[in-house]
């Protein structure tokens, strides 16, 4: 396989400033510098060019051991993803270097057409593979960001609060789907273990509708809490929801329900005073 000639690397090194100017111009005219500070861009472009020249010199192989270059690009992609650049803008960082580099090679190998063609191909393949690598890295970062946001959203929607010594409350707001019900149930159960709370109140005032699935999830949560040795009260059961539950033919007779959170807390404190909150 053809490799980059020493003379090519030499040319890159000797014409760094000119390459950089042209590269940055191309980036700017294509909107790939949005939200970027001037000095950051300078640092990134010159850093990459430096690495490219060094890495390739050592590696001696266009696609091979340019490990450092790759790591540099992964960091770059991550910062771009966080700045809100899209994958196209991120990849353009690499592709915009092609023009300036090609015209440089044309000048250097003006009288050696065979070598020019070969070197153009090598440079082109190298930049393409680095560009693809950048896109892949960008994708991975974006996915990580999305995953983290999803988790944060789930956590935000399931706040378990301590209401009293030994009493936890879980105010549910919004529609419950299967996945959210599961997260809610698990975090409440874990908090019971962590805090040693004897009574948990699940407040469903903010839940617009209860269907069979949600009602069953509630029932399972209450049962699991009882198995662990704590107690559960459901509060905020509005008339429509009570009707739905009866209509669905679900048996909630084993569950303590209260009209609102205040009544539930009152009952919880009373039970704690009696001191026999263990179930059975």
């Amino acid at each position: 396989m053809a490799t980059l000639q020493g003379s090519t690397l030499e040319a890159i090194k000797n014409n760094q400033d000119q390459l950089l100017d042209q590269w940055i111009n191309s980036l700017e005219s294509n909107g790939a510098t949005r939200n970027l500070k001037e000095h950051e861009l300078r640092q990134q472009t010159s850093g990459f060019l430096q690495l490219l020249a060094n890495g390739l010199q050592q590696a001696d192989d266009a696609t091979g051991n340019a490990e450092e270059v790759r790591r540099f690009l992964e960091k770059l992609s991550a910062s771009r993803a966080q700045l809100g650049h899209d994958s196209h803008q991120t990849a353009y960082f690499i592709f915009a270097l092609k023009g300036p580099l090609f015209s440089l090679l044309q000048r250097v190998y003006a009288d050696q057409p065979a070598l020019l063609a070969e070197q153009l191909l090598v440079v082109s393949e190298l930049l393409d593979s680095l560009g693809m690598h950048t896109v892949r890295a960008y994708q991975i970062t974006r996915e990580a960001v999305i995953r983290r946001q999803q988790e944060e959203l789930l956590e935000l929607s399931t706040p378990v609060v301590k209401l009293w010594d030994g009493v936890l409350a879980l105010p549910l707001i919004g529609t419950l789907d299967s996945q959210r019900s599961q997260t809610v149930m698990e975090s409440l159960l874990q908090r019971i273990v962590d805090t040693g709370a004897e009574i948990a109140i699940i407040d469903i005032t903010g839940v617009p509708t209860v269907d069979t699935l949600v009602a069953q999830h509630l029932l399972k949560t209450v049962t699991a809490i009882r198995l662990m040795g704590a107690d559960c009260i459901i509060s905020g059961v509005r008339p429509q929801i009570a009707q739905t539950i009866v209509h669905l033919g679900l048996d909630l007779s084993s569950i303590t329900t209260k009209a609102n959170l205040a009544d539930a807390l009152k009952l919880a404190i009373k039970r704690l005073d009696v001191g026999d909150s263990a179930r059975g």
């Binding site: 698990e186 159960l189 040693g196 049962t223 009882r226 198995l227 662990m228 263990a278 179930r279 059975g280």
Partner: peptide, 21 residues
């Protein structure tokens, strides 16, 4: 907690068995 959740899913709710934390 994980054991309790699994038992409920399994259909074993141990009625009549007293529990404590």
């Amino acid at each position: 907690p994980a054991v309790a959740i699994t038992l409920v899913e399994l259909g074993l709710t141990l009625p009549g068995v007293s529990t404590a934390l």
